[in-house]
Simulated scan of single mutants.
Amino acid sequence: MKSNQDASQERWFHRNRMWLVTAATLIAYVAFLEVAFGIRALASELSAIGIAPLLTALILLVATYVVRCWRVADYFPRETEGRFRRLLRLTLVHNLLNIMLPLRSGEASFPLLMRSEFGMPLARATAALLVMRLLDLHALLAAAGIGLVIGKDWALPALLLWLAFLLAPIPIFALKGPILKLSARLPKRLQTLVDEIENGLPASPVAFLRAWGATLLNWGVKVVVLAWVLRLMDVAPIAASFGGALGGELSSVLPVHAPGGVGTYPAGIVAGTLSFGADASSAALAQIGKAAVNAHLLILISAFVGTGLAVLIAPSKKL
């Protein structure tokens, strides 16, 4: 009997090890924040922004999740037709898992959830996720590039360079046909893989433009909101605020992402602000550190609020 109980406990720990690591990390992080800054001091810093700006920022951040969901719906119109609320719940659950689980392991939930909810083949959903993540990275860098242009006082060379980078996906997508034709020379096994990747690409230039536009809107709003919040918490100059938003979000899309982004997300914000011209004095770093922690907290709150709302309004069928 004891042996069976031990085996059952071992299976439980094995099934829940990711969440246990996440919970332990969050507890340790809260303890660290109390020692380093003081939870009350951080809360006071955040409340000093004012309820109206905080609610505005929170609403805009949650709205970006709706834009992200619309992009998926537009990407797979036939499979998701008439089920936007269910897709919204799937998108928000995937986003929360991506934030809370370590080392980007939450990404694996997207193709699994798409197969469970909409009967989509894993290869197609995975290929589409890869394409969307590449668009995300480009849009994130383009949105943060606004800070560089502002930092250069809107100098024409900097503006033209930013515009060239912003529009780069259009000619790249135009080369899709010639590149895919080369797959005919590949071994059959690799050609099958290329075919699955092709199935994950937008079907037409118009569909690509919609996906690209939704991606730019999503990340543009998110980066601008984060930069605004950082600036309200005395992160200066404005270019450094954009750099902080870029650094935090880059930390969340790279494989080094910690559970819940604890440590890595604020560190990314601090690194981004310094790279974009923030003061590196002890007093300035202390202020940036507190602002980074609070900006990260706002991201976590928006993810939980968005997921809670999506679960409430979605149909009752389990994912």
Rank of each mutant, 00 (worst) to 15 (best):
V93A: 12
L285S: 08
G268T: 06
G261P: 01
A267N: 02
V67C: 07
A158K: 00
G220D: 05
R133H: 10
G243H: 04
L175N: 06
S3P: 09
S109P: 07
R104W: 03
P202A: 03
I179T: 07
D279R: 05
L161Y: 08
A168H: 04
A7W: 01
V206M: 10
L134Y: 08
I99G: 05
S3T: 14
F165R: 03
D195T: 11
A41F: 04
F173Y: 15
M1C: 10
M100Q: 05
L250E: 01
F242H: 04
R71L: 01
L193T: 09
T273Q: 07
I313F: 13
T192I: 08
L103I: 10
L217R: 04
A36S: 12
V311W: 12
N4M: 11
I197C: 10
G289I: 02
L309T: 08
A23R: 00
F304V: 15
P157R: 07
I49Q: 04
V30I: 15
G289F: 00
R185C: 09
I49G: 03
G50M: 10
V194C: 14
I299S: 05
V66T: 13
P187Y: 02
F110T: 08
G268C: 06
A7Y: 02
L96F: 13
L232Y: 07
K152N: 14
G260A: 09
K176R: 15
P121R: 14
L141G: 04
I59K: 01
P102V: 11
I269Y: 03
A142G: 06
F76T: 04
P169Y: 05
L209P: 00
P255R: 09
G38S: 08
D279V: 07
L103S: 14
P171E: 06
A63E: 07
R115V: 00
R86P: 00
I288Q: 06
A227D: 05
T215N: 10
V206S: 14
A123C: 03
P205M: 09
A240T: 07
L55C: 13
K176V: 06
C69N: 09
V30Q: 11
F13L: 14
V194D: 00
E117C: 14
A31Y: 11
L130A: 15
L193G: 15
N218C: 12
R210S: 09
L122H: 14
F37Y: 15
L20C: 11
R133M: 13
L97K: 09
F242M: 04
